[in-house]
Design a protein around this nucleic acid. Sequence first.
DNA 1: AAATCTATTGAAAACGTTGCCATAGTGGAT
DNA 2: ATCCACTATGGCAACGTTTTCAATAGATTT
Lengths: 329, 329
Amino acid sequence: MRDVARRAGVSLSTVSRVMRGVPGVAPAVRQRVQEAADELSYVVSRNASGLVTGRTGRVAVIVPFLQPWFFGSVLAGISDGLQRAGLDMLVYQVGELRRQPGWTSSLPLRRNSDAVITVAMDLSAEECGRLDDVGVPLVLTGQSVPGRAGVFIDDRQGVAKATRHLLNLGHTRVAYIGSEGGSWRGRSSRDRLEGFQSTMVDAGLAEWSVLSTPGRRGGELAMGELLSDHRPPTAVLTEFDDIAMGAHRTLRRSGIPVPGAISLMGFDNHEAAAILDLTTVDQSPRAIGTAAADLTVDILAGEAPPDRHVEMPTRLILRQSTSAPLPSE
Amino acid sequence: MRDVARRAGVSLSTVSRVMRGVPGVAPAVRQRVQEAADELSYVVSRNASGLVTGRTGRVAVIVPFLQPWFFGSVLAGISDGLQRAGLDMLVYQVGELRRQPGWTSSLPLRRNSDAVITVAMDLSAEECGRLDDVGVPLVLTGQSVPGRAGVFIDDRQGVAKATRHLLNLGHTRVAYIGSEGGSWRGRSSRDRLEGFQSTMVDAGLAEWSVLSTPGRRGGELAMGELLSDHRPPTAVLTEFDDIAMGAHRTLRRSGIPVPGAISLMGFDNHEAAAILDLTTVDQSPRAIGTAAADLTVDILAGEAPPDRHVEMPTRLILRQSTSAPLPSE
DNA sequence: AAATCTATTGAAAACGTTGCCATAGTGGAT
DNA sequence: ATCCACTATGGCAACGTTTTCAATAGATTT
């Protein structure tokens, strides 16, 4: 910065003003400084400016994992939103680390980010509290906690929508495959199951659900179990697409036509769902990310209360894996 | 920090020494300071320490996109590696921005990161140079440029491996579907094509390749084109799995059994490849990420030359989509 | 007992910014 | 001509660390 000042023949203060775009600098001088900065390819050190302003210009994003497609999509959205606001994105993958009770303090968040966004972390109240201690705004995604800022979908309603789709097609024997344990998404898991159950009960039908280990393998097994019933379901809804893919595989191997004999539905609109022509419910993770970033920016600017909730819509994606049940039955 | 010092009854210098874990502090004092820091849940401000050390403790990772599964996997690996070394990860998604000539300077890299890792950016020499100007080590992944640090796979060899697999099964009419334009992966694209061509020529067979738009849709179209040949191939290899998935769809719709009539192979070991039982070549993106992070750490520590190349192995993943051609032909 | 060495600690200068206050012009109203 | 309000600019302290150097107190050697 000193070099820029010297080159433009002005003081440090003036360079600082130009770099921050604050008013009160003569146009001619402004341009001269700008040119000098460009020639030296100078950018301000966030380190130094953050030291005095107390703002770091960075937002920490905490994800449980980075590999599953879902997180990539949410991150893409967050990145878009933050970039627009000129903020940088720090990404922390907690993964296994999370098992340890004090994991929140192992993250160097304290004075190193202006806000924290968690993605589908399903935090406990205690974990939330610990993150609060960092002293920066906390925005949750994929999770709704009263009194805390969050962006999420209505899991219950989304599943209800899916269930009704199957009922509207004329199915009466509808089964649900959910996950249990091992998954990091406890709350959302429960909500989806309840959404299914209440919709079935409201329709005066028997609620029929199987819980299995999460993931594709779980779906395979659970589907096998359903097929071994003396009157198998004519439609199967799963908690998320991965499970549906496993179920799909079992059906394929058993030579059971989809949707001919059994209609199959997923949830999430997984990248690969399109490949299998799987009817599903879209929750547009990228939009969730953008919304979370925008919300964060607004909170930082004081334009939004630090407990605003943003609910994202879900959309039914109709593909080839669902149809009316065979009339013969 | 001052608070910690006061609470522990020592000077700032001593606290600093304790926090950095440098020797020269009496064990008793060390413990007292540690406790005080814990009670105040104090962590050092990277901002301030970076200001004086010149190190930021952060590494910038530049990716073209964040959504595709591949990037999530590489990031997961990078995150693992950096976390182990106590470094934070800044992620910049350049995406569309890249069209603009000066995009490199729009990233606040200069004094804000200790190193830059690019992921499958396929940078031009000029872009590399611009990133060099930032003045920090540059590590490329998915791209090999002489004289620059990089982690990559041998695309030619990987495709050659795949091609030989098909030839070993007894196929002689093997076609290749590659991508052209629109993709950000020019170099890798060319290498893969050449790997196929040279292997075929070496085997004394006719080289037969179709280029199409990248992605699933391109695969669908290209497969259709191949099927309209008066003697369609008995095996098809594609530049990457996405294309293979499109091709798979066309085959499914045409009622052509895979691998019965046509063997199909992808490349990359896409998440969804397992769903389609697609034989493919794995390049373990997560391992690439870890290797890139480790290399970066080593370069920063001066333990590796700033132009070290790390070549990652590829592995043939045998699944159900390839088999010997029908003897009848 | 004096001298030397070592281990531990503290004091103060830097690092590159920002924000406040002071200063110097500039033009208009009195 | 004098004063005022205003704009543009510079000077300097402060932010929270690390680093260098000096100081102190025991311990060891002569």
